[in-house]
Simulated scan of single mutants.
Amino acid sequence: MATFLKRKATVVALAALSLTLAGGGIAAAAHPAAKAPAEVAQPGARPPGQQPPVTAAETRAAKAALNATLAAPTPGLVAWAVVSSNGTLLQHSANVVSAKKFSASTPGQFAGQYQVTLDYAVNLKGLHATIGTNDAANVPPAGEVAVAPRYLIPNAVFVQTRSSTGGCADRPFHLFIAN
């Protein structure tokens, strides 16, 4: 009889614990302040994470850059660029050909989207970008940056910069391509 009561007490205790946890979860979901701070701080919907469409002019310019006379850096060396928030190429290594900022007023393009073109294929290289400037104080604005190979252009890199809250924003950046 004592074993039966111990089992029954265990089952009742587990049932009470389950109901308490379920009720607490429902109560926490009903209060928006109970959400994690990261959820509350994040903005609404972000623009799609897609690159702008490639134009025929961009394709021609990229092919012309591939025909440049410089050779790709040897393995272990780095190609680099410093690009301003308006897309101007401020400083760069020899293999960097150009930088441009996409126009946020064109459909499919958003603020903070850039393309950096080199004279060799970089689609299989290590890419890294960071928000940064080349001014005397070198204190960059707050923000985020993402880098990826440019869609359909093997010798270009796509860079997307955002504000600290995650919205698309024009930011200066430093780009590194590891060979």
Results as ranks from 00 to 15, higher is better:
Met1Ala: 15
Met1Lys: 11
Thr3Ala: 15
Ala9His: 03
Val11Pro: 04
Val11Ile: 12
Leu17Arg: 07
Leu17Gly: 01
Leu19Phe: 13
Thr20His: 14
Ala22Thr: 05
Gly24Trp: 08
Gly24Glu: 12
Gly24Asn: 12
Ala27Trp: 10
Ala29Pro: 04
Ala30Met: 13
His31Leu: 12
Pro32Arg: 05
Pro32Lys: 09
Ala34Leu: 11
Lys35His: 13
Ala36Phe: 14
Ala36His: 15
Pro37Cys: 08
Pro37Asp: 11
Pro43Val: 11
Pro47Thr: 13
Pro47Gln: 14
Pro47Ile: 10
Pro53Phe: 04
Pro53Asp: 14
Val54Asp: 09
Val54Ser: 12
Thr55Gln: 14
Ala57Asp: 15
Arg60Asn: 07
Ala61Ser: 14
Ala62Tyr: 09
Ala62Glu: 08
Ala62Gly: 15
Lys63Trp: 00
Lys63Leu: 12
Leu70Phe: 03
Leu70Ile: 00
Thr74Ala: 15
Pro75Gln: 07
Pro75Asp: 09
Val78Phe: 09
Ala79Thr: 02
Val83Met: 11
Ser84Asn: 10
Leu89His: 02
Leu89Asp: 01
Leu90Arg: 12
Leu90Pro: 08
Ser93Met: 03
Asn95Arg: 03
Asn95Pro: 06
Val96Thr: 06
Ala99Asp: 02
Lys100Asn: 08
Lys101Gly: 01
Pro107Val: 08
Pro107Ser: 12
Tyr114Ala: 06
Val116Phe: 01
Thr117Asn: 06
Leu118Gln: 04
Tyr120Gln: 03
Tyr120Ala: 06
Val122Met: 02
Asn123Tyr: 01
Leu124Thr: 06
Leu127Phe: 03
Ala129Thr: 05
Ala136Glu: 13
Asn138Arg: 12
Pro140Cys: 10
Pro140Leu: 10
Ala142Gln: 12
Glu144Gly: 11
Val145Ile: 12
Ala146Pro: 01
Val147Tyr: 09
Ala148Leu: 07
Pro154Leu: 03
Asn155Phe: 04
Val157Cys: 02
Val159Phe: 08
Thr161Trp: 04
Arg162Lys: 14
Ser164Leu: 15
Thr165Pro: 06
Cys168Lys: 09
Arg171Trp: 07
Phe173Gln: 02
Phe173Asp: 00
His174Glu: 08
Leu175Arg: 02
Leu175Trp: 02
Leu175Gln: 03
Ile177Glu: 01
Ala178Trp: 11
